[in-house]
Design a protein around this nucleic acid. Structure first.
Lengths: 368, 368
DNA sequence: TTGTAGGCGTTATCAA
DNA sequence: TTGATAACGCCTACAA
């Protein structure tokens, strides 16, 4: 079919290759940069194939399934690829094979150290395997979440990871319909969409109450969001308090947490309502840090005048005297575990256990 | 050419469509989820074309260049797309048109609030236009930077943005060779690769010296990295100090800055060497925050016993009493500007000025 | 182990 | 304004 090419049709790949062969010193086609010649890197697998004297499919195999190509050929091909700087076109690859190398990762908030750590951990596992993380933000907003999930339909990633769980049934369905591995984290729902590396926020709350009980506190309080994970931590805190005979003297709801100021205000309000509180559990470290600063500003000694316990293992809070005691997980490790499970699923293996729990620990510092 | 299809060849698109037409209640092909029927969303433009009674190319035009399609048809097509939830296959699109909708953004450090803000700002501009940000991390490592730039050759994004400038000539060349818009930020080099939204770190250092001079300090010191932007800030600080007649009594080099502890240590060392220092300029807010905490721990009053000035506009540092005075930029705004310039370039327009400066401001708080 | 044939879904190009 | 045709670069399926 090759020799009979007509004259008036547009040039095909092979025409172009023939031209290139006729003019060996290729003219660089970068923007007018005066780019040093040396020949632009090949952009097609056929060019490598020519150089190696094999068919394109053999090059393809040498790259993707090296064990299927004879040692000598493989070596030669890889050497040429290396030398020329050839890079596979991922779009062509994804189009033909239906497999993309993009994994989408959504954080609830890019400003959160812990979420970023988890994403980093996940990337550490996936990137060496040739996957690229695409990071997006859901901003704790259901509307944004829905939009992002719609955009996933267009993006066609190989897998998706969230630093959180998806609660809205419609979104869960949409994700399932993508037919790709979906990873949820940071909680421990009964029915994850697909895979989960999480922990029980209820347990976290319970741990807080038990810790206070162990330190001899009786009159305790809660500051936190009334929705999402905050609500779960409160539930656990209540359970633990009841079991240990603690008295929850106040539950302060703070629904928009954007800075430490919210924690400052909350503690001030709490104290104005109820001066006799001995220990406060703040459902996240941003609130806890604000509370700690406010307590210090008021001249209170921690933990004697008041104990403050946070949630999240934020390491900035370690440095604020006297140091914030906080419950949390190893976020980077969570990310790594998530990454390796995603990897298994993308390879078509079924991870032995699609739901994994990571350990909550309490890091004791000076505040409680 | 359609009717003469042989029997033994693999099914083509049209075969499949014919089958689908014969079995109108499509069997969902999601994983065994018992997915509610309602028919999976179409995955090919031809399906929309059938429904609308037009050719595929017309659907394509209605989606990309609506003005080229007659009003009535366009409306009908868009309505069908909307109703069915059809989403374009970006790989096919990128393959054929050579245009990807992915913009790669690299931060030096995902843990940095300011870098994340800049990336967010950039995303705010690009995402509504249908672009997806792909975020990566260079970890302040030249080796990592080189690897990432290599991976860009494979990823084939529509543009690239960095929170920083690329210094290594080889990497600069590789980026230029990509032939796509490249945005650098956070500094003000004489010869950016392509586009720049930056500020002068030297000016920042100079501002620090001028501020100290204006507050009546004479014996001043510097704490910071001796490479990259830290070095530039030091250069400016020296210039400003000389011009204002200040005496730089110490320059402390801290090359691995990973937490506030580094700032604590640095201040302690500085004071042990030279107790008479009146004001310290820390080249970044992490160091400055540590220094501030250490000064307080030692019982010093700020800014009377010692003034501390940071760089970076970190807002956590606002909350640490007495509040960190810091020089910096509006990072989100920088990101937005970068985004809109990238957008122009991707559309083939030349921004009027490919190099833009953003304003440095000093935020006065209690520390100096 | 290697190669041939052809399609993945879209859009550039040219013709009507 | 619309449509027919073919090609983007790769990889699956099958054949040798």
């Amino acid at each position: 079919m090759s020799e009979s090419s007509a004259a008036k049709r547009p040039p095909t790949i092979d025409d172009v290759l023939r031209l290139r062969a006729a003019e060996p010193v290729a003219s660089a086609d970068g923007e007018a940069d005066g780019e040093a010649a040396e020949g632009a890197a090949p952009t097609r697998i056929v060019e490598i194939a020519r150089l190696a004297g094999v068919s394109p499919i053999t090059v393809s195999r040498a790259l993707r399934q090296p064990e299927k190509v004879a040692e000598a050929k493989r070596r030669k091909i890889l050497e040429i690829v290396e030398r020329t700087g050839y890079a596979t076109n991922p779009h062509a690859r994804a189009l033909r094979s239906g497999q993309s190398n993009i994994v989408a990762a959504f954080v609830s908030n890019l400003q959160s150290q812990q979420f970023c750590l988890a994403v980093q951990g996940c990337g550490e596992v996936l990137e060496p395997q040739g996957y690229q993380l695409m990071i997006g933000q859901t901003s704790y907003s259901y509307a944004k979440e829905t939009t992002m999930i719609q955009s996933l339909r267009e993006m066609r990633p190989a897998a998706v990871m969230f630093t959180g769980v998806i609660e809205i049934e419609e979104n869960r369905r949409a994700l399932r319909a993508l037919g790709i591995p979906i990873m949820e984290t940071w909680a421990y729902p009964r029915d994850p969409i697909n895979m989960l590396v999480g922990f029980s926020n209820i347990d976290g709350g319970r741990m807080a109450a038990e810790h206070f009980a162990g330190r001899g506190h009786r009159r305790v309080a809660f500051i936190g969001r009334r929705s999402g994970r905050g609500a779960l931590r409160l539930t656990g805190f209540r359970e633990g308090a009841r079991a240990a005979g603690l008295d929850i003297v106040a539950e302060l709801s703070v629904d928009r947490v954007t800075s430490m100021v919210d924690g400052r205000r909350a503690l001030a309000e709490l104290l104005s309502r109820n001066a006799a509180v001995e220990a406060v559990f703040c459902a996240n470290d941003l609130l806890a840090t604000g509370a700690l600063l406010e307590a210090r500003r008021l001249g209170m000694r921690l933990p004697d005048d008041i104990a403050i316990l946070g949630f999240g293992h934020n390491d900035v809070a370690e440095e604020l005297p006297p140091g914030l005691t906080t419950i949390g997980i190893d976020s980077r490790d969570l990310g790594r575990q998530a990454g390796s499970m995603i990897l298994q699923r993308m390879r078509g293996e079924m991870p032995p256990e699609p739901i994994r729990a990571v350990e909550l620990t309490l890091t004791r510092r000076g505040s409680g």
